[in-house]
Nucleic acid binder design. Structure first.
Length: 592
RNA sequence: GCCCUUGUAGUUCAAUGGAUAGAACGAAGCUCUUCUAAGGCUUUGAUGUAGGUUCGAUUCCUACCAAGGGCACCA
């Protein structure tokens, strides 16, 4: 079933309401139709009676009952309507529509005919670049990068499911003070550095060395004035590539850290189409700023101030503030690089929309950059969207760091997978299978913890809750899929095939039937609002409904004439949850 | 001080201006010689404070309180 069909269903109901309103000489184009929060209140519901009661000098309840009565009359005389709508009830001023069993069975049929069930055409023909993850070489892959990755990958997939051509981009900071700090420290310990460069030790060991160099370099930068000066010097030399010795260490560290990131992306299931680097983008940004900072011109956007070049954003919007674009040493700051990056993105691809996903700590200065961009290139700003997410915090005590070690995104992934491995160690799987399952489930646990809630809020991450197979968790969803898969395997063995042929229809409606057809609407809403959590919450709903269905019914039963329909329902559930998990960037293991 | 964001059961999260504010975890009880019990079924409990707009406010507006972030050469 395509989303259009459901829109048709909505239109049908809307027309039904409009036609019934004519009976009472009421006309309105403003009919709001929704799924009631409580499924007992029907499949669709409208509040027109409440909206219209006052101007028609009647009570909402009375009007609702009149309208419902009229609609029921219309249904009674129309076979076409009866095929879709079972009945209409007025309650508390609402008018509630109950879909027919026939409609629900049809919707299950449609799901089985279409493995891509859930797609919509909201972004048809649009090319969208989504930039996310954005870790920095020479620094660890931290928890924020994990969040950005999970959210960005999910939004990318939701957009693809909504018809967009998505281009995935990753922007990595390979120049700047943080790099200089690491390089400084590696120069200080040049003997260790040289021997590591020669040695055939593991990537992890080398990465740890680079990471700790950054951390030490950062310390001395803050505490020792003479070291700060030296690091600033190195920073400049890295931009200029003017020092052979520095270049050698820099190139080595850069390649290695990028290689390590690549392994993490693989684990997380992301493939990028573009890698942008600050080193490439910086000169482009510098050019833009200098072009717009000509002292001989009167309409300058950027101004010189204390040896730096700044942008006074508060001149244009009182909520914004001044930011430095080029520092007093002539080096570009993040803001300038961002200008270069944006220009480069639009040169590389003909984009309808450019999305950037970062933590909310970047929100305020991104607004400043955006204002500068708006003045430089007014045509581009409406094609840009900055999505900000909250920060992840670890619930106290648990996952405590091993003395002084910062908990990185990578260590979180490893820990999550290890915990799953521990849980399944006594299960009847080969070591290879266990490794695969613990990886898929461990990553799912983490991703789900990130995607289950509104992205704007902070996340309190509790590792034990995250890897729980109970309740509101990624593993619970995967487990529900694996259970459905297992039942379907058994159905094959018993030769009970999905079918819609009934000797007699059991008119009882299962909750799961009332939820599955809504999937495309949920995907659409996720796309419109850039919010994966609608999908996550929906999947928990259908998983719960399926598990209840499973708990209360015997699905495989040769003596039950409904058995093949129950198998069809199970198959439909498995399609929907699998597609839903895919949209969250989560794999669906068939056994676990 | 100014600017953004967020305040919902004991805890972690939901709720396109609508119905009795939903889940999950925790706690108490029930449930399998049956398809994955890592499950299912009961019970328990919440909108920071004070106003305003509205037929109707967790949602919109104002003030206050609390938390997080940002406010010149880091990203």
């Amino acid at each position: 079933m395509e989303i259009q069909d459901r829109i048709i269903m909505k239109e049908k109901i809307e027309n039904l309401i409009k036609n019934s309103l004519k009976e009472f000489d009421i006309e309105t184009n403003n009919i709001f139709l929704e799924h009631p929060a409580d499924i007992k209140m029907g499949d669709y519901s409208t509040n027109v009676a409440m909206v219209l009661a006052k101007e028609n000098k009647t009570s909402p309840k009375e009007l609702a009952e009149k309208i419902a009565g009229e609609i029921n009359k219309m249904i009674a005389i129309s076979l076409d309507l009866r095929l879709d709508v079972d009945r209409v009830e007025a309650k508390n001023g609402f008018i509630n529509f109950y879909l027919s069993k026939n409609f629900l069975i049809d919707s299950i049929k449609e799901i089985l005919e279409n493995k891509n069930f859930g797609k919509n055409n909201y972004f048809d023909g649009k090319k969208v670049m989504i930039e996310y993850t954005d870790p920095n070489p020479f620094k660890p892959f931290h928890i924020g990068h994990l969040m950005s990755n999970a959210i960005g990958e999910s939004i990318s997939r939701i957009f693809e499911f909504s018809g967009a051509k998505v281009v995935r981009a990753n922007y990595q900071g390979d120049v700047g003070p943080h790099v200089a700090k690491a390089v400084y420290q590696m120069l200080e310990n040049i003997d260790d550095t040289k021997s590591l460069m020669m040695d055939n030790v593991s990537l992890t060991e080398k990465i740890n060395y680079i990471g700790s160099s950054y951390s030490k370099g950062n310390d001395v930068y803050e505490n020792k004035e003479e070291c700060k000066k030296e690091i600033d010097e190195i920073n400049k030399k890295i931009y200029e590539r003017s020092d052979k010795k520095i270049n050698e260490i820099y190139d080595w560290g850069r390649v290695l850290t990028l290689e390590a990131f690549e392994e993490i992306y693989k684990k997380l299931g992301t493939n990028f189409n573009y890698y942008f680097f600050e080193s490439i983008v910086a000169p482009i940004g510098l050019k833009i700023v200098h072009e717009n900072c000509d002292e001989n011109k009167s309409d300058n956007i950027f101004e010189k101030s204390d040896g730096a070049i700044v942008f006074h954003a508060e001149k244009y919007d009182s909520r914004l503030h001044t930011r430095v674009f080029i520092n007093s040493k002539g080096l570009p700051t993040y803001e300038t690089k961002e200008l270069g990056l944006t220009q480069m993105k639009f040169e590389k691809e003909k984009l309808d929309l450019s999305v950037v996903i970062t933590a909310n700590e970047q929100e305020e200065y991104m607004k400043v950059v955006s204002k500068a961009l708006e003045i430089i290139n007014p045509g581009i700003v409406h094609k840009m969207k900055h999505i900000v997410h909250g920060m992840m915090r670890l619930s106290s005590g648990k996952m405590s760091s091993r003395k002084g070690n910062v908990i990185t995104g990578e260590s979180l992934i490893i820990e999550s997978c290890d915990k799953i491995l521990e849980k399944i160690k006594d299960r009847d799987f080969t070591d290879e299978e266990k490794k695969q399952i613990s990886n898929d489930v461990g990553v799912a646990a983490l991703k789900y913890s990130i995607l289950r809630q509104d992205i704007s809020g902070n996340i309190i991450y509790d590792a034990d809750k995250s890897i729980s197979f109970e309740g509101d968790s990624g593993p619970y969803l995967q487990y529900s899929y694996a259970r459905a898969f297992s039942i379907l395997e058994k159905a094959k063995v018993e030769n009970i095939l999905p079918s819609f042929v009934f000797s007699e229809i059991d008119v009882n409606v299962f909750e799961i039937e009332k939820l599955l057809y809504r999937f495309p609407e949920i995907v659409l809403r996720g796309a419109q609002e850039f919010e994966p959590h609608y999908i996550a919450n929906y999947l928990v709903d259908i998983a719960r409904a399926f598990n209840a269905f499973y708990g209360n019914n015997k699905i495989i039963d040769k003596d039950d004439s409904m058995s093949s329909y129950k198998v069809a329902l199970t198959l439909a559930f498995s399609y929907v949850i699998k597609n839903g998990l895919y949209l969250l960037g989560i794999k669906s293991p068939e056994r676990m």
